[in-house]
Amino acid sequence: MLIRIDPDTDAPLFAQIADSVRADAAAGRLAPGDRLPAARDVAAALGVNVHTVLRGYQELRDEGLLDMRRGRGAVVTDAAASLASLHRDVRALAARARALGLSPDSLSSLVKEATRDR
């Protein structure tokens, strides 16, 4: 697993870390039961503060994607399988929209509208 950040963007580093892990789970590169690297190791590799990494991990814990326990580290939960399934659905939807000639912006607008309809 490779956690990626871009220091040149306005997005907070902890959010980029969480987004990177979320993307790996959605793409199926992380499965339930997988352990994430220790926060200290990630912080050293990325050149960021360990608390930045922990905040990203905590965001994922709050979403239910990670289980964090002292001594066990951060472990991916069963939510990763659901996220990967949703990712496949989204890719299929995007392919269908392309086939219909719908622009990415139009598809995005449709999805945003659908999420507001509760």
Rank of each mutant, 00 (worst) to 15 (best):
G56V: 04
M68C: 14
A27D: 05
D34N: 13
G73C: 11
R88G: 07
L102F: 14
L65R: 01
D34V: 10
K112M: 11
A15P: 05
A23T: 12
V48W: 02
A84T: 07
G47V: 07
S106C: 15
A39M: 03
A25T: 00
D67E: 13
F14M: 11
D19G: 13
A23K: 13
S82I: 00
L65N: 00
G73E: 10
L100C: 10
S20A: 13
D89H: 06
D34S: 11
R91W: 12
Q16V: 12
V76M: 01
L107E: 15
L54P: 07
A31L: 15
A74N: 08
G71K: 14
Q16A: 13
A79W: 03
T77R: 01
V42R: 04
R88A: 13
D105R: 10
F14G: 05
A26T: 08
G101K: 04
L13R: 08
A84H: 11
D24H: 13
S20C: 14
R29S: 10
P37E: 15
D41E: 09
A99Q: 11
S108D: 09
R69Y: 06
D89I: 01
D41I: 03
P104K: 11
V42E: 04
R29C: 05
D67S: 12
D34H: 11
G47E: 04
T9V: 15
N49V: 07
P32C: 03
D24S: 15
E59N: 07
Y57H: 04
G64E: 07
G28D: 01
A39C: 07
R88T: 09
V53W: 06
E59Y: 04
D8T: 10
A94Q: 13
R98E: 11
H51Q: 15
R35D: 12
T77F: 00
A11P: 02
A92L: 12
A99G: 12
R22D: 13
R88V: 10
S109Y: 03
M68T: 09
G56N: 08
R91Y: 12
M68W: 06
S103R: 11
V90E: 02
I17D: 00
G101T: 02
L86A: 03
Q16G: 13
L13M: 12
M68G: 08
G73P: 12
L65P: 02
G73R: 05
G71L: 15
G56L: 03
D105G: 10
A94H: 10
L110C: 14
R40D: 13
R61N: 06
L93Y: 08
A81S: 12
E63K: 06
S82K: 04
V90I: 09
G47I: 04
A94Y: 08
D34W: 08
A84M: 06
P32L: 02
E63Y: 05
Y57I: 00
P12R: 15
A94G: 11
I17L: 04
S109H: 05
L93Q: 07
A11F: 09
I17G: 00
D67K: 05
S85N: 01
Y57S: 01
R72W: 06
D34K: 07
R22G: 06
R91V: 15
E59V: 06
R35P: 05
H87G: 02
D6Q: 06
L54R: 14
D89Q: 06
T77K: 00
A43G: 09
A18F: 02
P7M: 07
R29E: 11
